[in-house]
Amino acid sequence: MEVRTIKVFTTVDNINLHTQVVDMSMTYGQQFGPTYLDGADVTKIKPHNSHEGKTFYVLPNDDTLRVEAFEYYHTTDPSFLGRYMSALNHTKKWKYPQVNGLTSIKWADNNCYLATALLTLQQIELKFNPPALQDAYYRARAGEAANFCALILAYCNKTVGELGDVRETMSYLFQHANLDSCKRVLNVVCKTCGQQQTTLKGVEAVMYMGTLSYEQFKKGVQIPCTCGKQATKYLVQQESPFVMMSAPPAQYELKHGTFTCASEYTGNYQCGHYKHITSKETLYCIDGALLTKSSEYKGPITDVFYKENSYTTTIK
């Protein structure tokens, strides 16, 4: 009895394709271990004539594949690729409408935090270190965002349907971005203890939790000093293409032309909904596939993004 075979390709990165001759009487799992086709788990399936010449994702289970996976995804987590594939199996079914010149995501599976993050990423200057993220990001900007969303979920250790947080998501993504040249110098002034300067680099240099107003941050924000008295913390120097200011959701007025974009969060910790506000020729609110415009805006804002380049204080 002759062994019926077909020729397929296996890959971990969709760049390096490895030619395989597979036995049609055995499952993919018996031949390769966990195997995925377009995100779908085909591990328990036997090869079919229609699979001839198709590319299958496999887990990096030998040295060659491990090197290829690390170079593309910059992670050695053995569960990463499987999590990416199972997320992709959902995100490829989502709709990605162009809204006001940006790629958004039609609401499904509690994905409003991903839509808000995706919209924000198209408006701030950011370059990702893992080629996987950078490639998928370019495709997302062009309207094909399924891979990018699935990668975000995998890097953030999230599953489809789980509630997510924009600030946490951005923080994970910033860790995989090139923020080497970003720098922030802060000064804390206390009447009792004097003053202390701190220099922050990388992710810490672009994120701040405690106030939404970048102007206020430049002037000074009140913080408790270690001595128990009130101290003032203010920005001395900022070198970065953008800054992200966050605070627990509270009524906040966004003035046209003073910011790049913002995240609105309605609801409580267990259950809520994100919308995205962007400042173009007027203010726009993007909620999944829905767009509304207004000249002014007041609502429960939790993150505001500002364009920056270089700032030095005039406070002496």
Rank of each mutant, 00 (worst) to 15 (best):
H276I: 05
C227F: 01
K46M: 15
L81M: 11
R184N: 01
T266Y: 05
I301E: 06
N147V: 09
Y137H: 08
S25I: 14
M85Q: 09
N14A: 08
M209A: 11
P78Y: 10
N187R: 12
D180Y: 08
F148A: 00
T75I: 10
H90F: 12
R4W: 11
P224H: 10
G82T: 13
G194Q: 03
K95S: 15
T292S: 09
V206R: 00
Y36V: 02
H176S: 04
R83E: 06
P78S: 13
T76K: 08
T35K: 00
Y297T: 00
P241N: 08
S79W: 12
Y297D: 03
T27L: 12
N110W: 01
K298I: 13
D62W: 00
C261M: 03
Y73S: 06
K92W: 03
Q230T: 14
R141H: 10
T313M: 15
A146P: 02
T198M: 14
G210P: 00
T76L: 12
Q123H: 03
S295T: 13
N187M: 15
Y57D: 08
Y274R: 00
K46C: 11
T198A: 08
K219L: 10
Y155L: 05
L119V: 11
N111H: 01
A108F: 05
V8D: 03
Q30E: 12
M24R: 13
Y84W: 05
A262C: 03
S79R: 13
I277V: 11
F242M: 04
T103D: 09
L118A: 02
P249Y: 01
P78E: 13
D180M: 10
A177Y: 06
K158L: 06
Y73Q: 06
Y36L: 05
E215I: 03
G53F: 09
K7Y: 08
K106E: 15
E215Q: 06
K307R: 14
A177T: 10
W107Y: 08
N14E: 15
C190H: 00
Q122I: 02
V304M: 07
S171F: 15
Y137F: 15
I315W: 14
P300N: 09
Q197D: 03
E308S: 02
I6E: 01
H74I: 07
N178S: 09
A205Y: 02
Q251P: 15
V188Y: 05
A205T: 02
A69N: 07
A262M: 01
